[in-house]
Every structure is written in structure tokens, then in C-alpha cells.
């Protein structure tokens, strides 16, 4: 027996997507097999509901299946798939006009005592209380481990916007999870808005991210 070293040449996602577009009936299923767990995690953590996540993932994958011919290779296939899945989730959230975010008109920034954490929300529950823009950014970056740049491509916004959504989302989660004291609505500090003459800070900044 004269053995030659075996060569493994697993087609990459792009090759599989092109094969699918060319009519290979198995190529797309292979792409799904590779990425479905991560896509499922994103859908479930963004929507917070198993059935909704299953519906969104199915819609998204069928959409990707049909739109494969439009894939231009400007991003990785997995990024492209995530964008379709996240958009499907956001569409569902907007359609159902989900629960409003927890209003935090006056927020105490004092560190919370340990005992506060006994009654703190589960992190998954707390995520669902965030504005959907903050939640989807945090799910991608902090939970799923995507870079800010990748999350920006997936969500179709600037990197600075992702940073801002994540930062503000984390700050609100810190309150909900008991890492910062709950609002007590008294006292105050000079706001950069009220002290703008002294500081020059922008008064009506809606969302950070240059």
C-alpha cells in the first residue's frame, strides 16, 4: 500500500454559497449546519422568546436561501447571515411593538450594596428590558463576542453607534442587575448640559458615536 498524505479541502462558506446559487441542492444546508447554533443564539437572545426566535430564524434562512444570488462577497457569509437574522428579529420586535424600556429619569450612580443583587433580575430578563437597539448591539458584541466592527456591519450602523449603544445598554443593565443603586430621585450634580457654558458639552446628544 503506497499511501499518499490525505488532503482535506473543505469548501469555505463563500464557495458553498456560490455552489448553492449554481444549483447545488446540499450547499446551503451545509452552510446552515455550520452556523445555525450561533444564529439561533442571536435570535433567541435578541427576541427572548423561543417560538418567535424559531419563526425569525426560519424566515431569515429562507430569505437567505432565495437571496444567495445577490450575495456580493463584500462581507463574510456568516456576517451576511447574521445581518439577515438580526433584521428578521428586529422586524418582529417592531411589529409587535414590544415592551417599553425601563425609564430611568433620575439615576443614582452610587455602587449598590451586595444585598441588592439578591433581588436583581436575571441577565437574560434584563436584556429584554433594554431598548431593542441597545439589546441587539450587546447581544452581538458582549454576548456573542463579535467585534464592534462586525456588529456595525451586521446592524448597518457606524462603529461609534455600536459603542454608544453597548455603553448605554451596559449602564442600564448595571442598574437592573443590581451593580448600581436604584434611582432614588433626590439630590443631583451639575449636569454637563446645565454646565455647558463651562464645559462646552453638547446639549442634545441623542446617541453617541461619531
Amino acid at each position: 500500500m503506497e499511501a499518499e498524505p490525505g488532503v482535506r479541502e473543505t469548501p469555505d462558506d463563500t464557495a458553498l454559497l456560490h455552489a448553492h446559487a449554481a444549483g447545488d441542492p446540499y450547499a446551503f444546508a451545509e452552510i446552515v449546519r455550520r452556523h445555525r447554533d450561533r444564529l439561533w443564539a442571536v435570535a433567541l437572545r435578541t427576541l427572548g422568546d423561543r417560538e418567535e426566535a424559531a419563526d425569525a430564524l426560519q424566515d431569515a434562512l429562507l430569505s437567505a436561501f432565495r437571496a444567495a444570488g445577490n450575495f456580493r462577497g463584500e462581507s463574510a457569509v456568516t456576517t451576511w447571515l447574521h445581518r439577515i437574522v438580526v433584521n428578521a428579529c428586529l422586524d418582529r420586535i417592531r411589529r409587535r411593538q414590544s415592551r417599553p424600556t425601563v425609564p430611568l429619569p433620575e439615576t443614582d450612580i452610587t455602587p449598590a450594596p451586595v444585598t441588592d443583587r439578591d433581588t436583581a433580575m436575571d441577565v437574560q430578563q434584563a436584556l429584554q428590558q433594554l431598548a431593542v437597539e441597545q439589546r441587539s448591539a450587546l447581544v452581538l458584541v458582549d454576548v456573542q463576542g463579535y467585534s464592534v466592527a462586525e456588529a456595525a456591519v451586521i446592524l448597518g450602523v457606524a462603529e461609534g453607534t455600536i459603542k454608544s449603544r453597548c455603553a448605554r445598554g451596559r449602564a442600564r443593565l448595571a442598574v437592573m442587575l443590581g451593580h448600581l443603586r436604584n434611582p432614588v430621585g433626590s439630590g443631583g450634580v451639575p449636569s454637563p448640559n446645565s454646565a455647558e457654558a463651562a464645559t462646552g458639552a453638547a446639549a442634545n446628544r441623542k446617541e453617541g458615536g461619531a
Binding site: P105, E106, P183, G187, S191
Partner: peptide, 12 residues
């Protein structure tokens, strides 16, 4: 006691 407005909190 340290209390911020929403805008301050977001800025920070």
C-alpha cells in the same frame, strides 16, 4: 447622594 439625569447618565 449622586443623582443624574438620563442625558448625564448616557453621556457618562
Amino acid at each position: 447622594m449622586t443623582t443624574f439625569s438620563d442625558a448625564d447618565f448616557d453621556l457618562l
